[in-house]
Each structure stands twice: as structure tokens, then as C-alpha cells.
Amino acid sequence: MVLCRQVSVVLVLVCALLTAGWPAAAQVVVRPAKIEARVEDGSALPPIEVTNRGQAPVRVVVYTGLGGHDLDGSPVYRDDAWARSESSRILRPAEDELYVAPGTTVPLLATVRVPEGFAGGLYPVIFLELHPDGTQDAGSVRAVGRVAVVTLLSVGDAAPDMQAETVLVRPGQDAGTLEVAVRVRNDGDVHAVAGGSVTISDGSGVAVAKIPLGAATVLPGHARELVAHWIPPAAALGPYVATVHLEEPSPLPPIQVAFMLEPAPAIAGAGGNRW
């Protein structure tokens, strides 16, 4: 199995080399690629190290933008003119261009600027745009590779305000499984980790399972979906209730959703309202 995976990776590498007319960007490692810190005006971020593991020197163009996320936590980047301007007031990289020779590591420093009297979360993104030496200016489709470093900066005393928006019970991706999906929204001023658990009870009210609700970071003004996965016993049929307990960042009143398990499909009808 391991051998198969290694062979497939080698094949993919060969394929990549065959299809690449010339590389879009060299092999570059960025660490940390995510920075969470409590800051104040003038704070320096931990150095971001850019390592070139390729064969050619790489010119790295550095600029900032703003970050957010979608329901699954995937980052949503903004680097239009407005976002660049706004983010550059918050975060100032020491360099706007790095030159990284093969086999070397170059640190990138950045300083935080906090607006006077501000308390809450700041979420600038540092973009590292990679331009390997020797890239030819040809081809109708040109490609630029870049790595985004997301930051989660907390300033002063600010609090999250997490609320559950909706709860859905739906078939899982794997056959015979169920997902309890809880959409949470942060209406506060700073990010926080939302998490908790889901208790599944049968028609008589007896708890048959307690499942962790995957904890996840939610930025202020954003929503995120937390999912609990349940594999019902083969004999499970009839009415059930999922009770959602959101315990992080602070406990919320439980939410109950009734649903029905039928032989096929795995679930019929789901929905519910907050108590």
C-alpha cells in the first residue's frame, strides 16, 4: 500500500516534469504559514521563513491583503487596491521583495500597527508571490504562484459572540452515515474557536451516542459549519433526536432537531428550530 503510494507520487512527479514547459515557481517552504498572536501597536510578528528548496533563485514579491473564510474555513483572500491599502496600515512587512538563493532561508519580518483605541481582531494576509529566475515570458496562459500567510491578531479586551444559526441532519459522504451540521456565526469583535458535542437520542429519549462537534475557528462577521459524524447501528430505525451542545467559546442553550431513520435512503426528512 505504502509502496503503491510512493510509486504514484513518483509517477505524478514525472508527469509534472513532463508537462511543465518551465516552472511557475520553485520549491518553496513557508513557515509559519499561519500566525495567531495577541498584539499591540508596534508588535513584531514572528519571522516568516522562506526556504528555497529548488534549483533556481526565487524572487519573492511581498504584499498584504485581508482575509476571511467560507463555511468550511477555507480562506477567502482580498488583495484588491482597497484591501491592500487597508491591510498595509495594519501590517507592515520589513521588505517588499526577497531574493532567496537555492538552499537558503530568508526571514521576513513584519510590524503590527494598531489604530488608536482599537480593540478586537485584525486579519491581514501576507502574500508571497514567487518569481523564479529564468522564467520565460511566453505562452498564452501565464501563471503566477503565491503562498498566503494568514494572521489572526487579537488586540486589547474584545469578546466573540458566537450564535448557532442553523442545524441540519443529512446523509454523510460515506454510505450509511449521518452528519449533524451546525452553522455558527460570530457577531463579536474577535475570532474564537467554536465547538461542542451532539447527543443522539432514540424515540424513547435514551441517549445512544455522543459525538464531538469538530471545533473550528470563526472570525468575527463570519459563519462556519461544524460537523458531527454519526454511524447509526444497522438496526437503527424510526424517530431520533439530535441535541446540539455548543460549549465553546461559552456554553449556549442546547438545540434539538428531530429526524427519522428509514431503511433506504439513510435518512428521510430533517430539520428543526432552536429551542
Binding site: P23, A24, G139
Partner: peptide, 8 residues
Amino acid sequence: AWPSAGVP
């Protein structure tokens, strides 16, 4: 690895 920088 990234996709090619130039694709004709």
C-alpha cells in the same frame, strides 16, 4: 510543484 509558468 506548480503548473507551468507559460502554457501555449
